[in-house]
């Protein structure tokens, strides 16, 4: 993708912290990335590194209470949405930007049927007669491969399998045909055949409507299939970002390399898997230097002293590591 492609979402130096009695959890601590029109950007990284919180910050849907975005800008289609009021945000969500939450449990209300919840989303988009809306709800479920949708709309969430709930949530998020979709692990509960059809559906929406997608996933197969570029996150920051092909074939950051080496294979020996030893730093007590230093094989004194700046590796490829070019 060329640099001239229009930016739809520009996140700059985002900091979202939890203020707890025990201390401050710096879950998102200096995240910057851009998402271009019609592009799919993957976001991968260690469990707990702040991917979901980054997404929720962009949606301005932070968990109630202790979480606050304390610094940064979120520019959506030219305007900084951190300046918008809650009611203006409600307008923006669903129409311009929409999100598939990682946890279908919190997006589906257990006391309403699937049909009620879909109808609500559809009515908000374009009010119409009940009969018409029900027809649309059935079609929306069929689009995500739910069998017997006419009957399923009368069911409650607990009567559906994990993968069905996840698809219902997906159907609700895309029903408004937003310009930007944030999908937080939308296929983790799906079997691979249904996953593939769902990914194809997202691709089609992306092509037909020019929808841009921020795709959070742990699955590198999905990244390969879906994404144009991928950002790798570690302990609250993006440490490498580049075109998928380059990240797979020539990862630069030691964390990215280790992560890719951990992918289980479909062929070869079935022995032990490679994993990264050690643990990420506590987000309440981040080191001054490189956050990966305690687990990095290439660590040297300067890594512990200061956070490495961002190095430009290729036209569209950057990484935060002191030793880029020498390892």
């Amino acid at each position: 993708m060329s640099d001239s492609a229009e930016t739809i979402l520009d996140v700059r130096d985002l900091h979202t912290h939890f203020f707890l009695r025990r201390g401050v959890v710096k879950a998102v601590d200096g995240v910057s990335f851009t998402l271009r029109k019609g592009e799919v950007l993957g976001l991968v990284g260690e469990s707990g590194c702040g991917k979901s919180l980054t997404a929720l910050s962009v949606m301005r849907l932070l968990p109630k209470g202790a979480a606050r975005t304390v610094q940064g800008e979120i520019v959506l289609d030219g305007e900084n949405i951190l300046k918008r009021t809650p009611s203006q945000m409600r307008e923006i969500r669903g129409r311009k930007i929409s999100m598939v939450l990682q946890d279908p449990q919190t997006s589906l209300n257990p006391v309403f049927t699937i049909g009620d919840q879909l109808r609500e989303a559809l009515v908000r988009r374009a009010p119409a007669k009940l009969k018409e809306i029900i027809k649309q709800a059935v079609a929306a479920l069929r689009r995500v491969d739910i069998a017997a949708p006419e009957q399923r709309i009368g069911q409650y969430p607990h009567q559906m399998s994990g993968g069905m709930k996840q698809r219902v949530v997906g159907a609700i998020a895309i029903s408004g045909e937003p310009e930007v979709l944030i999908a937080d692990e939308p296929t983790t509960a799906l079997d691979v055949t249904i996953q593939l059809q769902y990914l194809k559906l997202l691709k089609r929406l992306q092509r037909e409507n020019g929808m841009a997608i921020l795709f959070i996933t742990h699955d590198f197969g999905v990244v390969a299939r879906m994404c144009d570029r991928v950002a790798v996150m570690y302990a609250g920051r993006i440490v490498e970002c580049g075109p998928v092909k380059q990240i797979f074939e020539a990862p630069s950051h030691p964390y990215t390399r280790a992560l890719i080496a951990s992918v289980p294979k479909m062929t070869g020996t079935r022995g032990r898997l490679t994993a990264i030893d050690g643990q990420p730093p506590s987000l309440m007590n981040l080191p001054a230097g490189c956050r990966f230093a305690s687990r990095c094989a290439h660590v040297e004194p300067r890594c512990l002293e200061a956070y490495p700046g961002t190095t430009q590796i290729g036209a569209d490829h950057t990484a935060d590591c002191w030793k880029i070019g020498s390892i």
């Binding site: 991968v44 990284g45 260690e46 469990s47 990682q102 994990g162 692990e185 983790t188 509960a189 742990h218 590198f220 280790a258 992560l259 951990s262 992918v263 289980p264 032990r272 898997l273 490679t274 994993a275 990264i276």
Partner: peptide, 20 residues
Amino acid sequence: DEPVSALDVSIRAQMMNLLK
């Protein structure tokens, strides 16, 4: 029941080794 699908690949590998 899908114990590792929510984990990143490195922790998944750790968890699978641990389970073994």
